[in-house]
Design a protein around this nucleic acid. Structure first.
Length: 121
DNA sequence: AAGATGACGATTG
DNA sequence: CCAATCGCCATCT
């Protein structure tokens, strides 16, 4: 499937990418937190869309972005074959993050909020 | 052009 | 937490 991007959204997408690239190793953030930081509080869905469009790019640690409770809602987009369903989970585990039932354990503790950590970015 | 979709989120029960 | 529901908005069909 070809993903079409309007000029307007390239900016938004690029901003999302910049933030995602700033997520430290072993930490995670949420779609909403990113949207919020960009002043698009109500457009968290678009952050997810941005990930979908960027997921094939390298250097974008999209696996460190989960939903507001720490659930790996995007796992389905990481599989490259039938039995690759745990790819996202494995990527996170490789960073020392514990996953259980598709959810990040201690999500609150490793949550990285751009609003606080990236104030002067 | 109109309606459905979704890597979301907040609220309510 | 679960389930239902509503708001959201670019993209897809």
């Amino acid at each position: 499937m070809i993903i079409k991007l309007s000029e307007k959204n390239k900016d938004f997408f690029n901003q999302v990418y910049l933030i995602v690239q700033e997520i430290p190793y072993g930490r995670v953030t949420s779609y909403g937190a990113i949207a919020n930081y960009l002043g698009a509080k109500k457009s968290s869905r678009m952050v997810g869309w941005a990930m979908n469009a960027s997921h094939r790019k390298e250097n974008i640690p999209a696996h460190r972005v989960v939903n507001r409770i720490g659930i790996l809602t995007g796992k389905g987009h990481f599989m490259e074959s039938e039995n690759d369903f745990d790819r996202m989970e494995n990527l996170l585990k490789a960073e020392g993050i514990v996953i259980k039932n598709d959810k990040v354990v201690d999500f609150k503790k490793i949550f990285w909020d751009p609003m606080n950590e990236l104030k002067d970015f």
